[in-house]
Simulated assay, not measured.
Amino acid sequence: MDDSLEPGFTATGDMDGRWPLVIASPHSGRYYPAAFLASAHLPLPQLRRAEDVLVDQLLAGISGVPVLCARYGRAFLDLNRAADELDPRMFEGPLGVPARNSDRVEAGLGVVPRVVGLGLDIYRNKLPAAEAARRIAALHMPWHDRLATQLARAREQHGYAILLDCHSMPRPAGIMPPQIVIGDRQGRSASPALVTLIERHFAGAGWRVARNNPYAGGYTTVHHGQPAVAVHCIQIEVDRTLYMDSGRLVPGPGFDRMARHFQALVQVILAAAPLLGLGSPFSEAAE
């Protein structure tokens, strides 16, 4: 494996807290170290199927508001998992860092994933024991530290902070499935008024919108979404066929439209947020 890792994300916009909103794309990274590719059992096109392809580019037209985008591919490290969601069976020898089992780990989708796609194994062999700690220290911790810092700066200046965690999804099964899924951990990670505002924005554009089904939010919403202390985190999942050619992993006919609606959503939130009481104490029991 590589001896050192490059910076794990890009950050654009004003970082001084002047905006109450922060936007993140943890799964759109497409950089894969050469040593990782050499160790992988799968070719790059299959590894890239784990990405939220082009979500970072959908957000590229947003100005002012801080936007953080991962650089490394999700198959290398998943920023939307807890740092201890590790499978020791993937590594040679003791890990030297905490590890706990979860349904995601059992499925091969921990912070250092074992599989992509339909259960396809990523690696030819077990990884060195130190590799998990190295990736987490270099990529996972700085990402979540920066998110926490930006949210703290926003809350300090505005009395509240909002994080939009942006993802793409394969088209869900079923008749007339949702095209946009808004996740708030069943009402625990954000103000209901804010969630409703975002739902109405996308529904007003003519898309089918669902809340928490089939995606209610991952580690980011669990860790950063703390409405009791005026930090609101909402996960947004977009059907990737709305904006890209899923076969070739390039922008599709709907790309510009989706990008415009993300830009418009920023303006809708900035205009409405001061009126939503987002700095007021929030009780889950009220849901």
Rank of each mutant, 00 (worst) to 15 (best):
N213I: 13
S102T: 14
L86F: 05
S63Q: 14
I180E: 08
F202K: 13
L42N: 04
C69M: 03
W19H: 15
M169E: 04
M90N: 03
Y215M: 02
F76L: 11
H158P: 14
A34E: 15
S191W: 01
L139A: 08
H167K: 06
V231F: 00
M244F: 05
P251N: 06
G187T: 08
E156A: 15
N212F: 01
G279W: 01
Q235R: 07
A50E: 14
G204L: 05
H41F: 02
E6L: 13
E237K: 02
H41M: 06
S246K: 01
V222A: 12
G64I: 08
L163P: 03
D256H: 15
G159P: 03
R18K: 14
G61F: 09
E156Y: 00
L249G: 00
D121G: 00
K126L: 09
D121A: 13
R188I: 02
A99W: 01
L59T: 14
P172Q: 08
P33E: 09
L242F: 09
G8W: 04
I136L: 10
V97Q: 04
A285N: 08
A50H: 02
L139V: 10
L109W: 12
A138Q: 07
Q186K: 04
P113L: 03
I269N: 11
E284W: 11
W19Y: 15
P94S: 08
G247Y: 03
A107N: 11
T10G: 15
D84F: 02
A193W: 10
W143I: 06
G279V: 01
G117R: 12
V268K: 07
W143R: 04
R114G: 10
P172F: 05
L5M: 08
N125F: 06
V266M: 07
V97C: 08
A50S: 15
G206F: 05
R260T: 13
L44K: 14
Q226F: 00
S280L: 14
L86V: 12
D52S: 02
L278Y: 10
P88A: 06
H201P: 05
L276N: 12
G93I: 10
